[in-house]
Design a protein around this nucleic acid. Structure first.
Length: 478
RNA sequence: CGGGGCAUGGCGAAGCUUGGUAUCGCGCUUGGUUCGGGUCCAAGAGGCCGGGGGUUCGAAUCCCCCUGCUCCGACCA
């Protein structure tokens, strides 16, 4: 099963990966275009994936002491300008509100591209003592960046995300928390989304404007391009100084706290699509799939079939699964193709012959594997199969990642490997911006990250030949 | 922002070169039929041809401007 293509409306990914991606987004009814470039309608099936991501991730945040808040959508220009690097980075893509009703505003307001400045303004108000720290806030919201080009889920002008902002008494604690949140993201990607990640640090060129250090999780898509799936930043006390945020420490000294911020966005959904999807459409990780199990009655007009299917659905709902029963009069073939296109992880088939035998058939979306199960063991079997779907998806994605990390010792070799294979090319690196720019110019790759798991490949930088102690991953990114 | 392609019922397309008021497939509605991998038949509904301006007796078709989509660059936590 699932050997040949069933849904001809979807372009094969081998033919045109970008078109395949767009087709999946539209045909699976995740998203629709609006009349404004880069602003998309999240349809119920697409938004439900985000809701599931939110629900699970929000629990993880709360486990590490994070509280949710909500900040205003508008940032006065004067506030945005308080931190120099920050405003320089975001100014080119800010959208501005200049009118209130028919009145021109005294000061224009930026529609938040990110909310560091608003959080800082607030932190300055509410932080007095070391007893107020750490302060760990997060908000779920949308932000707006006037991007020149846009693609569903990968680059929107308005996109949904969460942004966490925390304040700590010491640099050490803030740094540790920055890494902790990166690990929360990494574990989420792997355990919930079945997306293997590479954890590491961004170069100065690629780091967040205003940050001292940016950490990242990088994923590899099916076309072997890199996707930055989440970032966590250590700010030091730069913003605290710019915004005059201080607290009184145990020694009665007035000092600046140390800060972090971290975020993931609906880009994760783009990652899910491009990591797991195939030529029949979406393949959704069971933990975030809006429909985890679809029950399909076969020959449903025959006595007892629909009732039996309906009963199976009830049992699965009661067991806590997200279930849909499709009792429409579309043909079996149509239904199979439909739910494959929509990436439903598990299908339960139940027809007259199954019922005679006191069984139903479970079919996995990711590999098409069919398993007949006794009706009385349904709940347990579904649980097991969903787990197998997750494991199968992760293993396949992990293989794709591991098999496409190549090692290079010269600029030319890096270029050849990228052109031939795509994926990540790992080399040593001297740490200079010049060499980073040269790699981009010669091999068309940007630095993805300096992985936490370091290897010594060589003694020298492949770009300049100078001594190099760091290993770095390069790649073509979304 | 530079270069290419595109915009016609919900979706996908034909018509445009050679101007005369729109065609096909899918989907949708109704009835029947079928149902173990996108059933079949019949009857229906639905379009100021992306927006604005111009040429013309007459524009989906020719000209100009705008908007959006898409691909390749550049740019981009």
């Amino acid at each position: 099963m699932a050997k040949e293509k069933k849904v001809e409306q979807i372009t094969d990914m081998e033919v045109d990966f970008a078109q395949w991606f767009t087709d999946v987004c539209k045909k699976a009814q995740l998203i629709d275009y609006s009349s404004i470039k880069g602003m998309f309608v999240y349809r119920p099936y697409g938004y439900a994936i985000w809701e599931n991501i939110q629900n699970i991730m929000d629990k993880e945040f709360k486990k590490v002491g994070v509280e949710n808040v909500y900040m205003p959508m508008l940032i006065p220009e004067s506030l945005l300008q308080k931190e120099k690097d920050h405003v320089e980075g975001f100014a080119p893509e800010c959208a501005w509100v200049t009118m209130g009703g028919s009145e021109k505003l005294e000061e224009r307001y930026c529609i938040r591209p990110t909310s560091e400045t608003l959080f800082c303004e607030h932190f300055a108000q509410v932080i007095q003592s070391h007893r107020d720290l750490p302060m760990k806030y997060n908000q779920w919201c949308s932000v707006l960046r006037w991007e020149k080009t846009s693609r569903p889920f990968l680059r929107h002008r308005e996109f949904l995300w969460q942004e966490g902002h925390t304040m700590h008494a010491t640099a050490q604690e803030a740094k540790a928390f920055t890494e902790q949140m990166l690990n929360v993201y990494a574990d989420f990607c792997e355990n919930v989304l079945a997306m293997p990640v590479t954890r590491g640090q961004k170069t100065d060129k690629e780091k967040f404007n205003g940050a001292e250090a940016t950490y990242t999780i990088e994923c590899m898509m099916h076309d072997r391009k890199a996707l930055q799936a989440g970032t966590s930043h250590y700010f030091g006390d730069g913003f605290a100084k710019a915004f005059d945020i201080t607290f009184t420490d145990q020694n009665n000294q007035r000092v600046n706290p140390h800060q972090t911020s971290w975020g993931v966005s609906t880009r994760l959904i783009g990652g899910i699509i491009m990591t797991h999807g195939d030529n029949n459409g979406l393949v959704l990780p069971p933990k975030v799939a809006p429909i985890q199990v679809v029950v399909l009655p076969i020959a449903q007009h025959k006595a007892g079939v629909l009732e039996a299917a309906s009963g199976l659905k009830e049992r699965l709902v009661n067991a806590g699964f997200r279930v849909k029963l499709d009792d429409s009069d579309n043909s079996m073939g149509w239904k199979c193709a439909e739910y494959e296109m929509k990436g439903v992880p598990l299908r339960v088939e139940c027809g007259p012959r199954d019922l005679e035998n006191g069984q139903c058939v479970l079919v996995r979306r990711n590999d098409g594997e069919k398993t007949a199960v006794k009706l009385e063991q349904l709940e347990q079997a579904v649980q097991e199969q969903l787990e197998l779907v997750h494991q199968g998806m992760f293993a396949k994605a992990k293989k794709n990642l591991d098999e496409h990390i190549y090692e290079a010792h010269s600029l030319e070799e890096a270029k050849d490997l990228q052109e031939k294979n795509g994926g990540f090319v790992k080399t040593m690196w001297c740490g200079s911006l010049e060499c980073e720019l040269k790699m981009k110019e010669v091999a068309g790759m940007s630095s993805r990250c300096i992985p936490f798991d370091q290897e010594k490949l060589d003694d020298k930088c492949p770009c300049c030949g100078k001594p190099a102690s760091k290993m770095i991953y390069w790649g073509v990114a979304y």
